[in-house]
Amino acid sequence: MSNMIIEQEPDDELYEHYRFEAGKGQSPLRVDKFLMNLVENATRNKIQQAAAAGNIYVNDVPVKSNYKVKANDVVRVLLSHPPFEYLLEPENIPLNVVYEDDQLLVVNKEPGMVVHPGHGNYSGTLVNALAYHFENLPLNSSERPGLVHRIDKDTSGLLVVAKTEQAMAHLTKQFADKTSEREYIALVWGNVQEDEGTVEGHIGRHIKDRMQMAVFPDGSQGKHAVTHYKVLERFGYVTLVSCKLETGRTHQIRVHMKYIGHTLFNDARYGGDAILKGTTFSKYKQFIENCFKILPRQALHAKTLGFEHPVTREFLRFDTDLPEDMQDCIEKWGIYSKSHTIEEE
Rank of each mutant, 00 (worst) to 15 (best):
I6C: 07
Q8C: 08
L14P: 00
R19I: 01
F20K: 09
A22F: 01
G25A: 07
L29G: 00
R30V: 00
V31P: 01
V31R: 01
K33H: 08
F34I: 02
M36A: 11
K46T: 13
A52P: 00
V63L: 08
A71R: 05
A71F: 01
N72F: 03
L79D: 04
S80N: 14
P82T: 09
P82E: 15
P90G: 10
D102V: 07
L104E: 08
G112K: 07
V114K: 09
V115H: 06
Y122S: 12
L130M: 05
Y132S: 03
F134G: 04
F134I: 02
P138L: 06
E143N: 15
P145F: 10
G146C: 11
G146N: 07
H149V: 08
V160S: 08
T164H: 09
A167L: 09
Q174L: 09
A176S: 13
A176F: 06
I185Q: 14
A186G: 07
W189R: 05
W189I: 04
E194F: 04
D195G: 14
R210F: 07
M213G: 08
M213F: 07
D218N: 14
S220R: 12
S220N: 11
K223G: 01
H228Q: 12
Y229P: 11
Y237T: 11
S242C: 06
S242F: 04
K244V: 13
T250W: 03
H251Q: 09
Q252R: 05
I253V: 10
F265E: 05
F265N: 08
D273V: 01
D273N: 15
A274G: 02
F287T: 06
I288M: 12
E289C: 00
N290Y: 06
I294Q: 10
A299W: 05
L300S: 07
L300R: 11
P310D: 03
V311A: 12
T312G: 04
R313W: 01
F318N: 04
D321I: 00
L322S: 05
P323Q: 03
E324L: 14
D325V: 08
I330Y: 09
I342H: 02
E344V: 00
